[in-house]
Write a protein that binds this DNA or RNA. Structure first.
Lengths: 203, 203
DNA sequence: GAGCAAATGTGCAGAGCGTGCAGTTATAGC
DNA sequence: GCTATAACTGCACGCTCTGCACATTTGCTC
């Protein structure tokens, strides 16, 4: 048959993508409607018209349905950090990343509501930021030419993640930060970090 | 019968405490021997000479056996922060707390090894620090007289937790920080934070 | 000490997540 | 069409965790 669709993908691939999206869509809807815990894999499977077993061939776990795109985010950040030109710091890269990530998105809003109502998911989210933080630590360590026992990369990365989290995850969810506010926050944090680093340099 | 033991506790209480300790002890030993995931509740129950069902009346979940003392830590930190005298900052309190927590302890070492070998437990640990971080955020917000939208408490707390974690959880586990090194790290972080806060103040 | 109330331990049944495996169905390429 | 391969499915199972009813133990009073 060879590839003859405008999409450049065969039927098999397209079906797969569609199923993937369907599972995410119906799952998020169900989670939002009746709560994450109270929604079973069986229900999602039925709504998505696949077998329960199939869900687990698309997602390693129920939580992974909710955080379906974090893997990709991680990959993109890794690339952006790895390929940043000479002179561009990890902080610069992250700032740009945050700006881009502020684009509002219906699915992401839905997810935010879901996560906000479930303790376990909040844990999960936190845990899933750890790899991102590790990327940052590494990149910042390069920027600072830090030795392994140097604590600076870790506290800088932690501050950045905290700011990122605060922007995306204000306690009182429903009124997220505006783009402007978020940028102001980011720049505050960057000033803070520069001030802190400067203070350490002068010791 | 009234209380007539030197311990000030009746038989029932003492038995309970003993069972509690036994479960923790045998569980940690089994986890260390054969891995967390590969150890079942049934095995722990057998080794502790109780029924599997009883384990869950002592601990809400398998993970809670590993982190059996974090609840108490949280409570102690909450009290220390709440009752700190005028003029003593949250940072001071935490510094003292970290110093105390550096006391080496066989059980804690064992746990560190267990957690180091299990992905899920590392997530769990991270998640369980969130409440502590929240306590800190609140206390620091007081110290700084921060308004709700002020980001500073969150980044300061995140830095502190990062430092605390780094001290207790160096990537290459087995050679933990010495007391001196740890204190040096803490004081670096405190300098860093003061420098960062100063930088923000001057804007 | 006998006896009663409350706390504690236990067994059982079951829900739910997640996995391994084998069999069926659908697709791709010829 | 035909075959190799990928995807889907059903089934059995192990494990964590819960609810519930029942048995056992303990604390206390008389």
């Amino acid at each position: 048959m060879l590839v003859h669709m405008e999409s450049g993908l065969g039927l098999r691939e397209r079906k797969k993508q569609k199923t993937h999206e369907t599972i995410i869509r119906v799952a998020l809807e169900l989670f939002a409607e009746q709560g994450y815990e109270r929604t079973t894999i069986a229900e999602i499977a039925e709504a998505a018209e696949v077998s329960p077993r199939t869900i687990f061939s698309y997602f390693p776990s129920k939580e992974d349905i909710v955080f379906y795109d974090l893997g990709e985010l991680h990959a993109r950040l890794a690339v952006a950090l790895r390929e940043r030109p000479e002179g561009v710091t990890a902080l610069d890269v992250l700032r740009e990343f945050i700006v881009v990530s502020l684009t509002p998105d219906r699915t992401h809003k839905l997810r935010r509501c879901i996560v906000a109502t479930d303790e376990g998911l909040q844990r999960g989210k936190r845990a899933r930021f750890a790899p991102l933080e590790r990327l940052l630590v590494e990149a910042i360590a390069q920027d600072l030419q830090a030795r392994p026992e140097d604590i600076r990369p870790q506290i800088v990365a932690a501050s950045l993640i905290a700011a990122f989290t605060a922007i995306h995850d204000p306690e009182a969810e429903l009124q997220p930060y505006s783009q402007e506010q978020a940028l102001a926050v980011i720049d505050d944090v960057l000033s803070f970090l520069r001030g802190g680093l400067e203070a350490l340099r002068q010791r």
